[in-house]
């Protein structure tokens, strides 16, 4: 029972962590919270489901999902955030909330309010580890998440462009004086954050075999909590925060009350903010 819940928690934790990475990267570089991150996740899922239903090709579906998520991310950057640089923090915050509502209602308009299945058959094999049953799908989710997190880490710390993104996050004027195009760095950040969220959305669409316009709301909020939990702006923090949240939520639902499963994320958040306002990995500015 315990190990089973641990595994289930790690699986949802991986998804939270992927979305939280988007939040934390965008916050790190722009100092704003993209409240519409959950909608990017949702569009990733819808892109994949729609194309899969039309073509039956999994590869095309994945490309479409990535494309939809990235497109939404870039449009958000260009139209909802870029014009607001340097304003009072309330202004981009409200804009992001508006963008989030707009995107989920647009999805309801285009795709209808009902859940859509993702009709792809994946291996039904299960493996038993410490009395916990792990499905092939769960392994896939954890594997893809771990691979993407590693890739992101390598990109940011090893590549020239990744370092440039870090430089913009640390001091954007100095970065410009070093010849770094900051707008390009912002777009690159939105692109990579959106791609991660899009992948998360596709994984969940398959995992639950359901896609709906509101599917991004709770995972988005929880991932944001996870980002705060880990310390906003910190990449390892987002990953740890996501996993901690996923596990805490599943254990809470199993041992305390399943009705309040969705509340545990926020209760954990409030507790962390009281004890350690900068998050687990957060540092003083």
């Amino acid at each position: 029972m315990f190990f089973q819940q641990l595994v289930n928690g790690l699986v949802s934790g991986c998804v939270y962590a992927l979305i939280a990475l988007g939040y934390t990267m965008i916050f790190g570089i722009l100092g704003i919270v993209n409240f519409a991150q959950g909608e990017i996740y949702m569009f990733g899922a819808f892109g994949a489901v729609t194309v899969y239903a039309a073509t039956g090709s999994l590869a095309l579906a994945i490309l479409a999902g990535l494309g939809a998520a990235c497109l939404v991310g870039v449009l958000l950057e260009r139209f909802a955030f870029r014009p607001l640089r340097g304003t009072h923090p309330l202004v981009p915050l409200i804009s992001a909330i508006g963008a989030s509502i707009l995107l989920s209602s647009l999805a309801r308009f285009f795709f209808g309010p009902e859940d859509r299945p993702f009709p792809h058959e994946f291996s039904a094999a299960t493996y038993t580890v410490f009395s916990a049953h792990i499905t092939g799908m769960q392994l896939t989710i954890m594997g893809i998440s771990a691979a993407l997190m590693t890739a992101l880490w390598l990109f940011l710390t090893m590549s020239r462009h990744g370092k440039a993104i870090q430089a913009v996050a640390m001091d954007s004027d100095a970065a410009r004086l070093s010849g770094i195009n900051v707008n390009r760095a912002y777009v690159a950040t939105f692109l990579s954050g959106s791609a991660l969220s899009g992948v998360a959305g596709m994984l969940m669409a398959v995992y639950y075999n359901a896609t709906s316009p509101t599917m991004g709301l709770l995972p988005g909020l929880k991932a944001f909590s996870a980002a705060i939990l880990g310390g906003v702006g910190s990449i390892p923090g987002a990953i740890i925060g996501g996993l901690v949240l996923g596990v805490a939520e599943n254990l809470g639902a199993a041992y305390l009350s399943s009705n309040f499963k969705d509340a545990f994320a926020f209760i954990a958040l409030v507790l962390v903010l009281i004890i350690r306002p900068r998050g687990i990995m957060g540092q003083r500015k």
Binding site: V91, P92, S95, I97, G98, A99, I101, L102, S105, F109
Partner: peptide, 20 residues
Amino acid sequence: ADYQDIFYGALLVTMMVFRP
């Protein structure tokens, strides 16, 4: 009525961008 939320969302974004 179905488009009400589209309207709210667009309203918040455009207000912030053009007339905060």
